[in-house]
Amino acid sequence: MTTGRDSEATDPRVPRRKRVVLADRRGTREIPRTMMELEEQNSVGEALVSHLMKVQLRSSLLLAGIIAVALCGLPVLFWLVPAVAEATVFGVSLPWLLLGVLPFPFMVLIGYLSTRDAERHEREFLRMVEK
């Protein structure tokens, strides 16, 4: 029960406010119990959240690592291997292609993967706490 709702329930201008709020929570029967368990911050709840954070962070770091290698590796590559910098593909200079066009679809792909992973981890977490 949050303080916001308490103060509202006692607000003379908005009588019987509480009922509306409860009605709004239809379809989420399981949630109050889970919430209480987690909010109590007992060792089980804490461990569950820590675990969720850990898997989310791990997959984010993995994808960030892929970006770091693929994109941030390019300047060093161009510097160390001038042949790459001078190559052309279908008459287009390779560096212009690698920097001007390809990064954008690549980043959308990584973004898609990250959304998919994060949502999967959240579903697994929900399955675990709502058992």
């Binding site: 949050t2 303080t3 916001g4 929570r25 989420t28 949630i31 889970t34 919430m35 987690l38 909010e39 911050q41 709840g45 804490e46 959240v49 969720l52 954070m53 989310q56 959240e122 579903r123 977490f125 929900l126 706490v129």
Partner: peptide, 23 residues
């Protein structure tokens, strides 16, 4: 710990506590 829970728990659990609403 509570803030962390709110930030990382999936939306369906309903921990989101918005500034405009709480004030």
């Amino acid at each position: 710990a509570r803030v962390m829970l709110r930030m990382h728990a999936p939306d369906r659990l309903g921990f989101v506590h918005d500034r405009l609403e709480s004030s």
